[in-house]
């Protein structure tokens, strides 16, 4: 198929970016979206032009490195996939596709479609872990965990930290990301010990880094490639409330 691409180009974080238009032809429907961009980049390199920079790594939907706001949707038109798993069969011959980076104050653009998501690491560093150090741990089966809770914890832990929730939110809120980590540990006995300090520290860091507030639009849940449920936000709010009143 033949496509017209309107792609955001930005030289560096300080530069003023703009859309450039490109044409690609003869793209197979079996091709993935990022492979289509690879093909475009090869043609740019042939013309001694700078290729379009975008983040990507595993290309199997798990590392969370790829992003892209495609036709107004984080990770594009398909549901439950990251951009790297989006395939061109979801588009039609002759389509125009608009490709932008995530837009959020907390995720500044580095170049073109590459963004800086260090803010997510900083939130985790604020308390998104159980503070055990290596060694001296009792047998794994000495902590039995209700299977339903373990499954719910796994649902929350499946977050890949891509930032689509922030990109989808009109307030650029990181609530779903933070809530997923808070929930995982709130549901498990291992996480209970530090539950109060954890939720307070992570929320404070989230606010400090310039993410917006949650106004319950659930756009995050709708766009999450890993179907992280907004129920986690309710659970985090409950945890946060308990921490504040205790």
């Amino acid at each position: 198929m033949d496509l017209t691409l309107k792609i955001w180009r930005q030289e560096n974080p300080k530069a003023k970016g703009k859309f450039e238009t490109y044409k690609v032809t003869g793209i197979s429907t079996e091709c993935s979206f990022l492979e289509m961009l690879d093909i475009l980049n090869e043609t740019l390199i042939d013309k001694v032009q700078l290729p379009i920079n975008f983040d990507h790594d595993c290309r199997e939907g798990i590392c969370g490195m790829c992003s892209l706001y495609i036709n107004g949707r984080p990770h594009g038109p398909d549901d439950e996939v990251t951009t790297c798993q989006l395939h061109m069969r979801k588009f039609k011959d002759g389509d125009t596709i608009v490709i932008e980076p995530w837009r959020s104050k907390a995720f500044p653009v580095i170049k073109d479609l590459m963004i800086n998501r260090n803010a997510f690491d900083e939130i985790i560093q604020a308390g998104g872990y159980v503070s055990v150090t290596t060694g001296g741990i009792p047998d794994a089966n000495s902590i039995p965990i209700n299977r339903a809770d373990a499954e719910l914890a796994m649902d929350a832990a499946a977050c890949i930290g891509c930032g689509a929730c922030v990109a989808a939110c009109k307030n650029a809120s990181a609530m779903l990301f933070v809530a997923a980590k808070v929930s995982q540990f709130a549901l498990l006995p291992q996480g209970k010990m530090e539950a109060q300090a954890r939720v307070e520290a992570m929320v404070a860091k989230m606010d400090e880094l310039g993410f917006g507030n949650c106004t319950n639009t659930y756009a995050c849940e709708a766009e999450c490639p890993k179907q992280i449920s907004a129920d986690n936000i309710a659970r985090m709010n409950r945890e946060f409330f308990c921490a504040k009143v205790s």
Binding site: V132, G135, A140, I145
Partner: peptide, 21 residues
Amino acid sequence: SIIDQCVAQGVPFARDYSGLL
């Protein structure tokens, strides 16, 4: 020891209905 360590970190391994791994 690796399994013990990971469980202590809150890694949500699959469990059976008794709550064991």
